[in-house]
Design a protein around this nucleic acid. Structure first.
Length: 157
DNA sequence: GCCAACGTTGGC
DNA sequence: GCCAACGTTGGC
């Protein structure tokens, strides 16, 4: 039974890093702030408890996958959308019919060696990853089991 | 800081 | 429903 799916989550380490996740209680965090419909639909329709996540640092000197995490709570309303002081406040999200959702993730393992974007681009195994496709900016995106396992192998080598 | 690529908004 | 203008993403 390979029901679990595989994902890549992007985060800007200046904003939220894997270390921040490791520092959380239970090493668990709400993945709030997703304000893109395609990403939301993936969270709502596809992500399930136990799914595997590659944690990727974007918009940083060396963009790289730096660890793994697990989905521990399925999609539920992103209440930060209703907080006018929050960064991703969205006055159009109705509390009775929330526009935006989030999942919770828990840190799994921190890589002993980062798998950089450059590594990924240079490795033919990863040529089909959305991450290296031109113009794909999804902040949460699916990866295949093979891609996931290969990146973990590189990261823990 | 630049800019290509994309998503969203809003006038019509 | 079209599409120009604008904002955002994210690598470089």
């Amino acid at each position: 039974m390979s029901e679990n799916k595989y994902w890549l989550f992007k985060s800007e380490p200046n904003n939220y890093s894997f270390s921040d996740l490791l520092g959380e209680k239970d090493q668990t965090a709400e993945w709030d702030g997703v304000r893109n419909y395609q990403a939301r639909n993936l969270m709502r329709d596809e992500m399930r408890i136990g799914d595997h996540v590659l944690f990727y640092h974007s918009s940083t000197k060396i963009p790289a996958v730096i660890g793994t995490a697990t989905i521990v709570k399925e999609a539920y309303p992103d209440f930060t959308a209703w907080d006018s002081s929050a960064k991703y406040f969205d006055p159009k999200s109705d509390p009775d019919n929330p526009t935006w959702l989030m999942v919770d993730i828990r840190a799994n393992q921190e890589f002993t060696s980062q798998v950089t974007l450059q590594d990924i681009k240079q490795n033919p195994s990863f040529q089909h990853m959305l991450l290296v496709k031109r113009g794909v900016r999804l902040s949460v995106q699916p990866v295949t089991q093979q891609e996931y396992e290969e990146i973990v192998k590189l990261g823990m080598s």
